[in-house]
Simulated scan of single mutants.
Amino acid sequence: MPGAAPSTDRPAPVGVDPTRASIARVYDAFLGGKDNYAIDRETLAKVASVAPEAKDLATENRNFLIRACRFLASQTGIKQFLDCGSGLPTAENTHQVVQRFDPDIRVVYVDNDPVVLAHGRALLEENDNTHFVAADIFEPREIMENETVRKYIDFTEPVALLQMGTLHHYNGPAGRPAEIMREYVEALPSGSYVGISHFSDPEDELSALARKMEEVFLHSPMGSGTFRTKSDIEDLFTGLELVKPGVTLCADWWPDGPRLLALNDAQRCISGGVGRKP
């Protein structure tokens, strides 16, 4: 059972509370990772009770991140990436994807989850062009003025800013995520790109399911997970020119090949896009 506590749970690192759910650890559980605890798997079990394919929310988010990073590294000339809400290291992290195209691309990861700090720093800092910052991704000024960020990110040159699966975990005023992104976009130089993925309400026969998943996420031990409409997600890209096909299902954003199987319900409830600052 996803919510059962296996005997393989390891002792928690210093500063990590295994009795409180962590967004990073819940995502790790959704992706089938091992850096999570029973409290995190409880969230997975509850969401899966209303959407059996719920794991695909995380899978599609990860696949979209990979494809967007491939595009940005291979087609835009961007040489520096700021990945907000990096989460726990898994297969095909941002730096691994983009540095395959150019080893000199600089990547700065930002997260303030104690479990990410405990588990992730060593793996994320694999080379001289990959760095980690402990900060709140919902405080743009704090990020942009961070000493380490400014040491490795040159804001006179275009930057790729990533907010993959992060903004739906903001717990505050409904309009604040769009304000957060406007602050980020204003600070970015011309020619920069922004990639965002977000839980989405398809505004069709699956709307009821999206709202059920939202209700479960919000009342789970994790306590966050808002599903926004397409227009609400497009508002996050204010000031940017959307790269075709615009905001769409993550699975539909430049897939790797022809689709032979229909998308399941969960795959139809997470969307994303990439925009360019003129």
Rank of each mutant, 00 (worst) to 15 (best):
D232R: 13
S192N: 03
G195R: 05
D201Y: 09
D204W: 06
A187W: 05
E203V: 00
L209N: 06
Y193A: 04
S224F: 06
V194I: 10
S197G: 05
H219T: 14
G195I: 06
A208I: 10
V194A: 09
S231E: 14
H198Y: 12
G225I: 05
I196F: 09
D201M: 08
L209V: 07
E234T: 11
V194H: 05
G223A: 07
R211D: 06
E205A: 13
L206G: 00
A187S: 14
G191S: 10
M222L: 14
P189C: 12
I233G: 06
E234M: 11
K212I: 00
E215A: 15
H198P: 02
F227L: 08
S200N: 13
D232W: 02
Y193P: 02
K230G: 03
T226S: 10
E214F: 07
S200E: 06
D235T: 10
E214P: 02
G195P: 01
F227P: 03
S231W: 07
T226Y: 12
H198A: 04
R228Q: 08
P189W: 12
D201K: 12
M213W: 08
P189D: 09
S197T: 15
P202I: 04
S192C: 04
L218Q: 13
H219N: 15
G225E: 01
V216N: 02
D204G: 12
G223T: 06
P221N: 07
D232Q: 15
L218S: 03
D201Q: 05
S192D: 03
A208C: 08
F217R: 00
S197Q: 04
S231T: 13
H219Y: 02
S224W: 03
S192G: 07
E234H: 02
S220F: 00
D235K: 13
K212V: 00
L218W: 01
D232A: 14
R228K: 15
S192T: 05
V194Q: 10
S207F: 07
E186K: 14
K212L: 11
A210Q: 03
I196E: 05
S190K: 14
I196V: 14
K212E: 15
V216Y: 00
L218E: 03
P202F: 09
A208F: 05
E214M: 13
K230T: 09
T226Q: 09
E214V: 10
D235L: 12
E203I: 01
E214D: 07
H198R: 07
T226E: 09
S207R: 12
E186S: 12
S220Q: 01
F217T: 03
D201V: 10
M213E: 00
D232L: 11
F199Y: 14
I233C: 10
H219A: 09
T226D: 04
S192Q: 06
A187D: 03
F217E: 01
P202V: 07
R211M: 12
F227H: 11
G191N: 09
F227I: 01
H219M: 01
R228C: 00
G195N: 02
S190R: 13
Y193N: 04
E203W: 04
A208W: 05
P189A: 10
E186D: 15
H219D: 12
L206W: 06
T229L: 06
M222F: 00
E205F: 09
R211A: 03
D201E: 05
S200H: 12
H219C: 01
D204S: 04
L206F: 11
